[in-house]
Amino acid sequence: MTTDERPGNRADEQVHMAAVDEFLAWGKEHSLFYLLFATACCGIELMQAGGPRYDVDRLGMIPRATPRQADLMIVAGTITHKMAGRVRTLWEQMTEPRWVVSMGSCANSGGPFSKWSYSVLNGIDKYVPVDIYIPGCPPRPEALIDGVMALRERVKRYRTVGERDRTPYIVAGPEAPFGGHCKVPDFTAKKPDGGGGGSA
């Protein structure tokens, strides 16, 4: 492979299939069907993300009940050692190309169960390859959508030929400088007019 990395010189741009591949990636990006699958309280936030307020259907995401028709697995909730094998089976039943989002502290690292539990798996990435990690306990739907947007960037770069990007991406928390939708309103600040319906 050439070491010249100027635009137009990369292998995937030289091959004529590149245009088709780009079109396929566009389709994948806009139609990420996710697996209807949740194990704990993160699942409630996942459902809420599909509800009228956050509505991931805007991004072309609808739930599918069977892993064969799903592109995206959102591991939402605590995964025990017993459950992990089932999650792995579900992941194996999904069709390529497939992506995994680890949602919430439990799926990321065991979360609140990591110290005192004998049965909770500390991180689903020990069983399936995770693309996006979303911190939070549970993360709000905004954080989930932030993760999905990050995933869409990755899907856009997916090509049938060539290497697949596997570097884990961690969605930044509410303190992150970007993403205004993640900002937590400052409830402690006093209102400038000092009245009118605020807490007394």
Partner: peptide
């Protein structure tokens, strides 16, 4: 008197370098 396992089927319970004060 149950002794918490280190791993299940070879999958370690704690993550690499993870350590908790006062854990069982």
């Amino acid at each position: 008197d149950y002794l918490y396992p280190d791993s299940y089927h070879g999958v370690a319970h704690l993550r690499d370098g993870q350590h908790f004060e006062g854990s069982p």
